[in-house]
Design a protein around this nucleic acid. Structure first.
Lengths: 208, 208
DNA sequence: ATCGACATACCAACTGGTCGGTAGTATATA
DNA sequence: TATATACTACCGACCAGTTGGTATGTCGAT
């Protein structure tokens, strides 16, 4: 079922949907861009809505992998939960620093302003991924709070969600300003906030 | 030129566009929802793209007004630039606390994932408004930095942009989770960060 | 008599989706 | 080894409904 053609359709569709939106991406244009035919499309997807579902599923899986690989890498570098977060933020920072051109953004955000795509199933996938990010960060924050008393009583789940919020918001601004530097700038502010919440470097600069 | 019918069209269109997206909002459905006819629509707008432009223009004007009125109110309450920011954040907090149901979100964010709407003109409007927010916050932060030495050397423009980033990102999460509480939570985290940057209340809680 | 503010009928282009067909390959059978 | 069978992957003509947009007309106020 999962052939190269199916992946080609999904790749092409993701690019088109992220830039023009789902409704504005016609199947005619999609199959033309992918260099295939209507028949091929409907061989792999039973409807356009089915494509939308497959797109979020795949995007969510990639996003999940990115999250776990980043934290996996961080865990191999340090056992300190707070440092792990900083390393993960550093990984994303490096990524956006090496990017040029407008970031393509997040499919979840694209979907959330197109209500026909917010089916129960798609919402479960999106919120499931947001929950994974929340858990990954909150887990480290909760462990860190025992090491750094400054964070006692802080809303650590909200702090964890703020990572996602920062990404989604920064994508919006990076897209309108056509500048990936916004991503780096906001990433650094989020990092700074986390440092301050845990009572790290009250004023000076410190690199992990 | 600006009659009640034109406003009705814009009101209806804004609601529809914020929930379903621009491309998915057909003129047939728009005029039916507004209870008018195609003739009325094309009497006020020369094309659908023209509607898109009028929508951002109006949204930007309302947003501008919201910004200046909020800071105007804050200025009447205190001369301290940092407290002004906290009051403004408090105003928005009150607003989202009194809201029930999913927030409708920001038209700018909706536009930024639909490239056909990102014309030079629309981008100028959107970025113009983002700049206004940046200036309003950054102006207070720069003045505050002279009063609170802890903030010396901080990226105050980025900190100002973070307000917009937080709103846009929180809208995304609030929409997928159908919960305006996300807005309040993230607003509080942003406030907390600002406090920490300026060396305010290192641990305890303080209400303005 | 003119004009702004709509209403109605209509159109060509495009939309998502269907359907009969076919080329190639794997498997079964004689 | 030759042939029949079956199946996957894909093609492309076609369709009914919808799309943004237009042309013409109506009607009340000035």
């Amino acid at each position: 079922m999962t052939t190269a053609t199916r992946e080609l359709i999904l790749d092409t569709a993701q690019t088109l949907v992220l830039s023009r939106g789902f409704a504005a991406t016609s199947l005619d244009h999609l199959v033309e861009t992918a260099g295939i035919t209507k028949g091929a499309f409907f061989h792999y997807f039973k409807s356009k809505a089915d494509l939308a579902e497959a797109l979020v599923e795949r995007f969510a899986a990639q996003d999940m992998k990115l999250l776990s690989e980043s934290f996996g890498q961080a865990e191999r570098m340090t056992a300190d939960p707070l440092q792990q977060v900083f390393i993960v933020l550093g990984i994303f920072q490096n990524f956006f620093e090496s990017q040029e051109g407008t970031p393509s953004g997040c499919l979840f955000a694209s979907y959330c302003y197109q209500s026909e795509l917010l089916t129960e199933k798609n919402l479960r996938i999106i919120n499931g991924n947001f929950a994974l990010w929340r858990e990954a960060f909150a887990d480290r924050y909760e462990r860190a709070a025992k090491l750094y008393p400054a964070a006692q009583g802080a809303d650590l789940k909200g702090l964890a969600d703020m990572a996602t919020v920062m990404f989604e918001g920064a994508f919006v601004m990076a897209k309108t300003q056509r500048d990936p530097a916004v991503m780096v700038q906001q990433l650094l502010h989020y990092r700074r906030y986390v440092e301050l919440v845990f009572g790290q470097r009250p004023a000076a600069t410190q690199v992990h």
